[in-house]
């Protein structure tokens, strides 16, 4: 890892010195094991960049804070960050030419106790599918044979059991909206939740309103979820949000054929394009 970190700092320095990027989004040192996102503007600050097993946060979303940058933004991308950027480019939130993707093949991240993160265990793209520069050697993809295992278990439940299961899940939600705010697929200029005048979403915290939020959000990102698992990672009350996302992905796959969001910039998300062979049982 430390050799990669050295390479990263060197590359960052070079990009900043040559003026190829205006700043670089990467990870830095935090209070304990934390490696929070940092923004490096000066070549002399590149030693603040960290690359190790604790760099967990997805960085793609920060591009939305600077939609019309003066010069390119350099951004460190693992597989999941790269897919996040592709998603944002496909949604026309970010221009591909405005970003310089510094690829970092990734073997997974760990929590403070050294346990592999669930989102990394389930990762299917440890190498960034799209990048401008790549550091180090590609790592072996391990795939995720259990991708839909949990969904299949849940599908076996009866309607009542399913309702009880999800009611228990959403009963715990505290509506901090962290899942939405870190999600690279959630890039609406104004979220339905915040449209109080229209009144889609009540402000009261109860199981029904929590479900309205959680389920609407899941549907809204159905064909755009890049399976980065950030929603689950940041959820302070540990809701299994990826189960819901994967259920929708599984259903979409069976309806429209296999699709992985954010992997190939040239393939549109299934709900974002019309094809003659699309199923139309709802007509």
């Amino acid at each position: 890892m430390s050799q990669m970190q050295e390479e990263l700092r060197q590359k960052a320095k070079e990009l900043l010195e040559k003026g190829e990027v205006r700043y670089i989004i990467g990870w830095g040192k935090g209070r304990f094991h934390h490696r929070p996102p940092i923004f490096i503007y000066q070549a002399e600050d590149v030693d603040k960049l960290v690359w190790d097993e604790y760099c967990v946060a997805n960085l793609g979303k920060y591009l939305l804070d600077d939609k019309f940058p003066e010069g390119k933004i350099g951004i460190c991308v693992r597989g999941c960050d790269s897919r996040a950027v592709v998603r944002l480019v496909q949604d026309k939130q970010v221009k591909r030419e405005d970003v310089c993707l510094i690829g970092l093949p990734c073997t997974g991240k760990v929590d403070q106790e050294g346990r592999e993160l669930v989102k990394c265990r389930d990762c299917m793209h440890r190498n960034p599918p799209v990048y401008d520069i790549v550091l180090g050697e590609p790592v072996e993809e391990k795939g995720n044979p259990d991708r839909f295992k949990r969904v299949e278990e849940l599908e076996k439940l009866s309607s009542d059991e399913k309702y009880e299961y999800w009611s228990n899940v959403f009963d715990k939600c505290i509506r901090c909206y962290a899942c939405r705010n870190v999600c690279p697929a959630c890039n609406c200029r104004e979220c339905f939740v915040d449209q109080y005048r229209v009144g889609w979403q009540g402000k009261q915290k109860n199981c029904m309103q929590n479900q309205i939020f959680g389920l609407t959000r899941a549907y809204h990102i159905a064909d755009r979820c890049i399976e980065c698992g950030e929603c689950e990672r940041v959820c302070p009350v540990g809701l299994p949000l990826m189960e819901l996302n994967r259920k929708l992905i599984k259903d979409l796959n069976s309806l429209f054929g296999p699709y992985e969001a954010g992997v190939n910039p040239d393939v549109k998300p299934p709900l974002g394009e019309y094809r003659l062979e699309d199923p139309e049982e709802y007509m």
């Binding site: 962290a178 939405r180 940041v234």
Partner: peptide, 10 residues
Amino acid sequence: RKCVGCGICT
């Protein structure tokens, strides 16, 4: 810069 604007802290 790095704040995601969620309500966890509050």
